[in-house]
Design a protein around this nucleic acid. Structure first.
Lengths: 341, 341
DNA sequence: CTGAAAGCGCTTACAG
DNA sequence: CTGAAAGCGCTTACAG
């Protein structure tokens, strides 16, 4: 067994004090001339590794953060990729906790705080129970940054980085208008304050502003594996039938395609479909789904960078800053002109 | 700002020594009668939270582990769900680091060790560079458990929990034999020691043992977004044409379906296809893909439990233990009898 | 530039 | 059952 090498060991070998070694090894402070070189070489020879537990306790910086999020799709994978990249550059490491029904959020936040994380990055679920526990962190001057879903009034000091969902929904609407559609439908799920909710509101607002345009909106409560089938059936049984459907997340398109197939409605000849998110399924559907592509890697990276900046500022209570990332239209084959009457 | 409450604060208020408070709060040792009650109530009143940095330094247990894995699909999400569940129960929290070309593995292991993780759970990539750095952990008596991909001879003390890939491949072969197929093909990717490699070898071995059965094997080097299209074209241009194709991972089926469609081969009437993993895509393909379902949540859970057990045993150098989880056939629509001549 | 000392917030023998 | 003391491995003023 190898026993950990300590400052004392190095000091002994180098014939200097522990304090000198500490200073020489830290990038900080007064330089120690040639002594430093000697200390450095002894340290590396001995395979010294600083105990970050103690270091963190002394300095108040553990170079660790907490990350509260779950992993279910390509979007989350992108977020994590971006986050990891930014943290790597700062030599910071994330504790990752997965929100779940069985585990109280407060307990998770305490688990992080007890380990003295420097900050917390979170992707809130839609549920409100998150917000009220954030003060446990903020009160201790541990900054919190939220990605993808914005926290609400309860926690106005929480920075936000996410997709500009409203802009994306407006692009979807404009695209449909541009193709000649006026009789639209919107199939949605997810309540305030989820991105899906914001997309729906923005889409409806865009329709309101467009002359002669109407929107038949169907909202379904969120559930696992939701696919929009029931809502699509309602939409397709309207008369006159909408010529285009906006779904607030790609997964809903699956049910739309199925309902359309059952009614022998061709996509896009009889009905156009446009999604949001560019999840894996968008490219797999036949015809491939036109959708709004998010930039999860950027969101993750910028979110982590903002958190690191907050940590350096030592300012957990500043006003909220928001960064909105523009989504981009990915044109595939599910969108065409409205059918001729 | 709230300043952290320490043992001293509680001791002062309770009129006892710091040591007494420490003992009363720890679940360990001698009970302190009524004093304990008083201390406990003062602690909770003050909102005391133990500093796990210091606690970890004192006891040598940080209740943190390192988790080295990346997130790209449903399988990984399942692993993480299982891991999280097991760790939650032990009040343990994982640092999660994502392997990537840009970041040296050694650096990641050091980042974990410097933070004094109690153990490391890893899902190795196929690359060998992992293994030789594991000793950094093992030498310090930090146990390592590997999931999904078994580490090799370099690190024989590393426990393994993963799918019984060989058994799964044998099931695939038996299923095809049972349906009457004898002219088989195997499309594979991934080298030793990935699960895909093991599946391929086991499949070929099963074919060898079956009378009159042949297998046309095509191996493609692993790359991102690989879909098996080129390999499928090679398979389909054989004469006589194989009547069934085993792909060592579901994603490869995508190219097989495409190649089949281009040649107007119907699935399963003209050619049967069987996959491995039950990834999301398996259910989305048309016809839905018959495949071998893995049990990622169990693998994750058992892997984490094994690691926790190793930590408790304080035995990082015991012999390797292996847990193989049986995969299960998911019958969907891509498998039928061979075409009549 | 360097050393001696104090301190971070705990736990753990060791006495009483 | 409880207290006084030492110690974990560092960092940080404070003297020299």
């Amino acid at each position: 067994m190898r026993v950990a090498v300590t400052l004392k060991d190095i000091a002994l070998r180098a014939g200097v004090s522990q304090a000198t070694v500490s200073i020489a090894l830290g990038s900080s402070g007064r330089i120690s001339g040639a002594t430093r070189e000697r200390i450095l070489s002894i340290a590396s020879e001995l395979g010294y590794r600083r105990n970050l537990l103690v270091h963190g306790m002394q300095t108040g910086r553990t170079k660790s953060i907490g990350l509260l999020m779950s992993f279910c799709g390509r979007f989350e994978a992108g977020l994590f990729e971006g986050i990891s990249g930014a943290l790597d550059a700062a030599e910071c490491v994330p504790f990752v906790l997965r929100p779940s029904r069985d585990v109280p959020v407060l307990g998770q936040i305490h688990a992080l705080l007890d380990r003295r994380v420097d900050g917390i990055l979170m992707r809130p679920t839609g549920e409100a129970r998150w917000e009220r526990h954030l003060h446990e962190a903020l009160d201790r001057h541990v900054p919190v940054v939220s990605i993808d879903v914005e926290t609400q009034a309860d926690a106005p000091q929480v920075d936000f980085v996410g997709t500009d969902d409203a802009a994306g929904a407006a692009i979807a609407a404009e695209t449909l208008f541009g193709a000649g559609h006026r009789r639209l439908a919107c199939i949605s799920t997810g309540d305030f304050p989820t991105p899906m909710f914001i997309r729906r509101k923005a889409f409806e607002a865009a329709v309101e502003k467009e002359k002669n345009a109407t929107c038949h909106a169907v909202h379904q409560p969120w559930e696992d594996g939701i696919d929009g089938y029931a809502a699509a059936n309602e939409v397709f049984s309207q008369s006159p039938r909408p010529t285009a459907v906006f779904v607030t997340m790609d997964a809903l398109a699956r049910g739309v395609y199925r309902a359309a197939a059952e009614r022998r409605l061709r996509i896009p000849e009889d009905v156009s479909v446009i999604g949001f998110a560019d999840e894996l399924i968008a490219g797999l559907l036949q015809p491939p789904l036109t959708t709004l592509k998010q930039r999860p890697v950027d969101i993750g990276r910028i979110g982590a960078e903002r958190l690191l900046a907050r940590i350096d500022e030592a300012d957990a209570h500043g006003e909220r800053r928001r960064v909105l990332i523009q989504p981009e239209l990915v044109e595939r084959a599910s969108l065409g002109q409205p059918p001729k009457l």
